[in-house]
């Protein structure tokens, strides 16, 4: 899937939502025209019509005795339409009905009768029909397009992302040009994954070491000799308002932000990997190391 295909899908999604929005908020006099617009747009876009046809095929295959009846699905004369509860059933029956309305000599208003109170206004009938029949159908198609866009995004990432290889740096390539990996991080972590970059266990060891490198750097920068200070206490020794690095901050909220950032990193990343096996996938492992690298860089800047 190329970038062009992704952009095309985004464009279809946006246009479909705009056309659907026109129908969903239409005045009753323009309802038939707006329905026609929607049906034409769906029919002209394979990503939509192929999906609907597939859904109808699946539904009829799984429900061989169910007859798609369009208006025949009404509860009675001017009653409401009763569709199957399954997603496939709802899409299949709604699409059949919408085409029947579009091809009919009658206008949409006639089919919308029964969707408001007996003395309801024409506009109320249309609004209620839109809300109960067309909106769910539109939402199903929007979700289908969302899925297709996500698929296209993933496919695009797959095209540009490195495939699993033994090249450790391949996982860091998006960021490696901008920043240099910390030398201690390189020394302590690269050895675990060099030649072993596909192995989550190797990344697990690398991340455990990265956490230790981070704590050691905090000690070094804060000139903290008390080895019993670990985790959040160590972070607080540096970054609370009485911490050793507090004077480095002119803005109080920034200091607090740094405290929260480092405490968060220790709590969510360093501690879990210190106490149990995480075995991250290589992409996550690479991202984790880059994040620790950034935290080390910021500490070094504060020590100057």
């Amino acid at each position: 899937m190329s970038q062009t295909a992704l952009n095309e899908l985004k464009k279809i999604s946006k246009t479909f939502r705009q056309i659907a929005s026109r129908l969903l908020s239409t005045d009753y006099e323009s309802a038939d025209l707006n329905l026609k617009r929607l049906i034409e747009y769906i029919n002209n876009n394979p990503v939509l019509i192929d999906y609907i046809n597939d859904v109808i095929e699946t539904f009829t295959k799984n429900n061989p005795n169910y007859e798609l009846k369009g208006e025949g699905d009404r509860t009675g004369h001017y009653g409401r339409f009763i569709f199957p509860t399954s997603l496939e059933g709802e899409i299949a029956c709604t699409w059949t009905l919408l085409n029947e309305i579009n091809d009919s000599e009658y206008d949409l208003l006639r089919f919308a009768m029964g969707y408001s109170s007996p003395r309801g206004k024409f506009q109320d009938e249309i609004d209620s029909f839109n809300k109960n029949v067309i909106n769910p159908f539109v939402n199903h198609l929007i979700h289908h397009l969302e899925d297709k866009i996500e698929e296209a995004k993933n496919a695009e990432q797959f095209e540009v992302a490195p495939t699993y290889s033994d090249d450790f740096m391949a996982f860091l390539r998006p960021l490696a040009k901008e920043i240099n990996l910390d030398s201690e991080l390189t020394d302590r972590c690269l050895t675990h994954v060099s030649g072993n970059a596909n192995d989550p266990k190797a990344w697990d060891s690398a991340l455990r070491n990265a956490g230790v490198v981070l704590e050691n750097r905090m000690r070094k920068v804060g000139k903290i000799t008390d080895s019993s200070l670990v985790g959040a206490k160590l972070v607080n020794a540096l970054f609370t308002d009485k911490g050793v690095l507090a004077h480095k901050f002119q803005v109080e909220s920034e200091r607090q932000g740094f405290r929260d950032l480092y405490a968060g990193a220790i709590g969510t990343m360093r501690n879990p990997s210190a106490h149990k096996f995480i075995d991250p996938i290589p992409e996550e492992g690479g991202a984790y190391l880059m994040f620790i690298n950034l935290l080390l860089k910021k500490l070094d800047e504060l020590s100057k």
């Binding site: 705009q18 969903l24 929007i142």
Partner: peptide, 16 residues
């Protein structure tokens, strides 16, 4: 004049 709902993605005039 048109904006989109961040949640459902449908659009309308901003006054709506």
């Amino acid at each position: 004049e048109e904006i989109f709902c961040p949640s459902c993605g449908l659009s309308s005039e901003i006054g709506n």
